[in-house]
Design a protein around this nucleic acid. Structure first.
Lengths: 216, 216, 216, 216
DNA sequence: CATGAATGAGACTTCATTCAT
DNA sequence: AATGAATGAAGTCTCATTCAT
């Protein structure tokens, strides 16, 4: 499970380098190790000692790269935010040329695939928000709003062309996100019954029908 | 907000007595106080000292009633589970006499009202599961399955009468739960835009249309 | 050496009770132990573990009584300040009935005796000021000004009666304090050559002659 | 303020070379940087990292020049001691040709000017002694005795010529030093009210009158 | 029943020092 | 010479739990 998350994070390697010049790689290693622990045990149950051990260094060294535990969490969140922004950017680009209906199907698939990869972030979002300092929490909320507005625009587009009857596009957008996210936070049940593809297909249909006819 | 949660818990007073003979009431007071803190700050950030203070007693006394902090959490979960069971029992009873479509509408409203009241439990479920020992975690999962099967049965009923086309009733049931729960865990956004009633109405419609037509 | 300091502190026992009702005594024990260490090794070189050990308790218990190391230092300073205030109050009272010259002699003796007893505080003042947070530092400075104004008033009195020619009474007052304090901070040399009484007598004479004739 | 101290140290450049052949200069730079920090924050609050940074090098390099933090402190003390010795040598030379009274006035002025420049050392002496290992502490004490004996000789001279009545020349010498040093360690109050010159003039008069008449 | 003092393991963090490059 | 990554001991503080009163 956690390996997947880390792979996903790994794909933003280029972005990782922004953490620092040469130090980037090592900081990255640490964040990856920390991410794995954060997801498995939560930030509160993960000690800096655990992170150091998982990174193959000692606590002293850890503090050579990060000046506090919060700093590590922040770095982890940086990737969450970067990841989402990247996802939105890429998705927007892809969808530009498609018809509304096709675009929505495509977006749903992309988002669920993203959710599949970025489970760690989704779970973090659902489970750790409360334990974060307010400014970090705000970052995550804003991050979520960026996602929501992506879907809202797509719905709005379809509605203008008379494809969807749904009126409250904002709420629908949020519902869509939640229905995608559940792949991450209900994995304990879904994972035993569906492949990722199956889930995507079924969920897409459920959502589309909700959109087609919802008249409120 | 949290007072509502506690009121909800309060309605299961009769069940509280099972905790002990005379001690029941006091234990109950403590659990109520603890619940409020758990929801606001999480179990990890809530100290036994906080709980004692919120209960108007001292740590020493607290340990007369509960033999550990985990014990308090367990007691809290007892109520979560009892609450859900009670909800399912009552709902089942109410729905018995209704037509499938009406029953579903009713069930959705009841569930969302329950979610509204029992936010604490929903949030706990979404956020704290990971911090619990495996056996406790399992209890919560089972609890969730009980809810899911309630909805699954309702869907199945409608499908047999040709009302719903949706095929995967289990997944649909889980989706419904998630769409209800989001009232609790996305309150930060929903709370500013919708009343509880508005949310219920809109969400019901979205769900029903998903069910009507979903053909997978 | 340090036993003397603590005895001196001990004489303000009654004041110690203000620290708390029943807890007062224990807090007092801890502050006494801490004071001994602070004087011998400085606040920075004194660990909370050292204080706990010297108090015959464990660190956990220490933090039951004080919420931080700074808190202990503050409590210690409380006594410094109380001690000085008490000294000023008592001295003022005693001097009220005396002629200026006699009053000054008396005040000098009292102050040096006080310095003798309260070495710990004098040393603390001279050596640790820099390591204290600004507000604490300010308290000590104000404390020192209280002492200075005591002497300044006495000088002023004598000057009005034509006994002293010295003009800058404020500077003279500060010089007097320093000449008394040196008994504490140059003890390493003075202690080997003078008894407390000898020092007081000699220093009094030196000071008085400075006052009689200083015309600037 | 601290720049002055360092300038003062800087004037003993020739002495610095004794530290090492080629390395002398660099070591000197480091000690100067360290001195500034020691004075401002104390030795305990100054990290080797701070020293390195203030010297424009890195920790690793620092340890090429000094084998420990204590080593740097020792080097700093070397300058304190050298400075005092230099001061005593120069002063003795200057005074040789003057009459006792004039010599004393001159010595007082020179000492206070020196104190003004070498605040760092004075403060160090008053505040950090305790944190030093015994042998270093002893060096500083001896240093102080050298100063004291300078003044003692001057007093003795005046006494022999019947100018001063004071009997305890040693104590008087120490008092003089303290009255000069207070310019450094009570700067927080004196600095706001007097210029260096004003202080020197007033203090000289106060001291002289103490010497003229003190009969003990 | 109730108290709150006492405990000690463990959390986060700092820092002087070493060493491979 | 110079670097800075690495170390680990030690420091301050928290907290669930126990126990004598």
């Amino acid at each position: 499970m956690s390996s997947k998350n880390l792979d996903m994070l790994g794909s933003y390697q280029e972005v990782a380098d922004k953490l620092g010049q040469q130090a980037g790689h090592k900081k990255w290693e640490i964040v990856k190790a920390a991410a794995g622990l954060f997801i498995r045990k939560g930030t509160l149950n993960t000690g800096v000692r655990d992170i150091a051990e998982a990174s193959g260094i000692t606590v002293g060294t850890l503090y050579h790269y990060f000046k506090s535990k919060d700093d590590i969490i922040t770095a982890f969140l940086d990737f969450a935010v970067m990841g989402t922004n990247e996802f939105v950017r890429m998705t927007t680009e892809v969808l530009a040329k498609l018809q509304p209906e096709e675009a929505m199907k495509r977006a749903l698939r992309l988002y669920m695939e993203y959710t599949n990869e970025a489970q760690s972030i989704v779970l973090f979002w659902h489970q750790e928000t409360r334990n974060l300092p307010p400014d970090q929490r705000k970052r995550l909320m804003e991050n979520d709003m960026v996602l929501a507005s992506l879907f809202e625009k797509l719905i709005e587009l379809g509605r203008q062309q008379g494809i969807y009857k749904i009126k409250d596009t904002a709420l629908a957008a949020h519902s869509i996100i939640v229905l995608g996210d559940m792949w991450a936070f209900r994995r304990w049940w879904l994972g035993r019954r569906y492949t990722s593809d199956q889930f995507i297909e079924k969920q897409t249909e459920f959502i589309l029908h909700g959109l087609y006819n919802g008249s409120i």
